[in-house]
Design a protein around this nucleic acid. Structure first.
Lengths: 242, 242
DNA sequence: CGGATCATTGACTGGTGTCAACTTAGGTGG
DNA sequence: CCACCTAAGTTGACACCAGTCAATGATCCG
């Protein structure tokens, strides 16, 4: 298990990155890896907060259900991100896998105790949480004030920076890595369908669909498949935000 | 100054509550009290994060401006709350006093260093930030999915629990304290005007005004003055949320 | 090839924003 | 103490964007 941590693909970016080999060994004994199926819910909103963990691979959503039964996605968790609610009685948001995923889970009580013994872990958690809060508040502005076209533009740009791959005008750039996208076209392979986008943007699936059609007709994007979007003119999306 | 901390009205609830007298003395040397005028902005969005602090008295707002110049309030800070962005280069949200206020400020660099030497403070900050994040996410659902009547109802109920005073059917309850409100009427003395409410709820001032009128006509609330709202039937507001 | 799911499109409705006029509250100075 | 003035709040008319309901079209999978 210690070895599993050493070779962990998110070793450098997860909350455990600052631990010494001994500490890591200690923590790893409390952890358990789990493969999550697409659509599987790891934690339900309102549940007792029994588990926390790290995303190793895949994309998960944090979501809440409105009183009238609609779903609102509050954030996405990518590899290296922390999930769950430490130091609290209940998890206020549900955590559901959008894609197949692998996670590394801890009993919350064990993790809490470990974190309190390791200030560096608490500090890392604090920095992450402060960053999450900043991002949540940015998103609040989008949900509170922006039109459907603006919401979609902002979302596509964020996706591009998270999981987009730059595409050379002449052909594939090749590596499929994290390369920063600039002015050129970007390819996004969506890990989810239209309904999930609607849930994220606080819109209906029909409105999302109409906005995508509009952007395609304008030549700003191309949609070679249901789950692929090419940003042909990212700068136009950026312009649409103002 | 040490004495000032000992007698501080938010001594029990602020981030410094867990400190020993010696530690408190240490921290207090780095702090400075400041009186803030209504409307005064303590920190501007995008500023270098130079200051952090505690609210001692009054109500402040955290806000962001949309590209087209509208204001969105992201949260309110009440006495005991922590303000500013520790461990970061910039403050993403502006902090502006809605009422006259008193705060206790630290240079961020000093506070950061102090916190890193005192895991208990970092832990407290982490718990606060996690709570803030939960609340921000609840509010996201409101902004993303709820109608104007629902937003106002939710806001009035939150205000009631924060700064409302229960009112006996026969007369004043008297103490003006934090007493939990139950089924009975609650009086809210608004620390801000209609525009601020609109900024919080992501609506226009006209829509807020119309909703208030609607609730008054329905007998759910009374508005004896511009800055006073009496919740005559809080349970109706609660019902309106579903 | 056929069925099911997901996505798109269309027609219509309703809620909220916008612009503008009007009213009220509250403070100031005669 | 009252008249006035200003800022804040209210109300009305109208337009438009996004939601709803319904039908059609495209993909994926067995």
């Amino acid at each position: 298990m210690f070895d599993a941590c050493t070779r962990c693909p998110v070793r450098a970016s997860a909350v455990c990155h600052s631990l010494s080999p001994d500490e890591l060994d200690d923590l790893s004994r409390a952890g358990q890896r789990k493969v999550v199926e697409p659509g599987e819910t790891l934690m339900w909103e309102g549940d007792d907060a029994l588990l926390v963990g790290n995303v190793i691979e895949g994309v998960l959503k944090l979501s809440l259900t409105t009183p009238d039964g609609r779903d609102q996605t509050l954030g996405l968790a990518y590899p290296g991100d922390f999930i769950g609610r430490p130091f609290g009685r209940t998890t206020r948001q549900g955590v559901t896998a959008l894609t197949g995923a692998r996670v590394c889970l801890f009993r919350r009580s064990s993790f809490d105790a470990f974190a309190r013994r390791h200030p560096q872990v608490e500090h890392d958690l604090l920095e992450r949480t402060l960053g999450e809060l900043d991002r949540a508040r940015d998103w609040m502005v989008l949900l509170a004030r922006m039109s459907a076209p603006q919401r979609l533009a902002a979302f596509l740009l964020e996706l591009a920076s998270r999981i987009g791959t730059p595409v050379d005008a002449g052909g594939e750039n090749g590596d499929g890595g994290e390369a920063e996208y600039g002015a050129g076209p970007v390819r996004i392979d969506l890990p989810f369908g239209r309904q999930a986008i609607a849930d994220i943007l606080g819109l209906t699936i029909e409105t999302v669909s109409r906005q995508i059609t509009r952007l395609r007709d304008a030549g700003t994007i191309a949609t070679p498949g249901r789950r692929t979007i090419m940003l042909l003119h990212p700068e136009r999306l950026r312009a649409a935000l103002n």
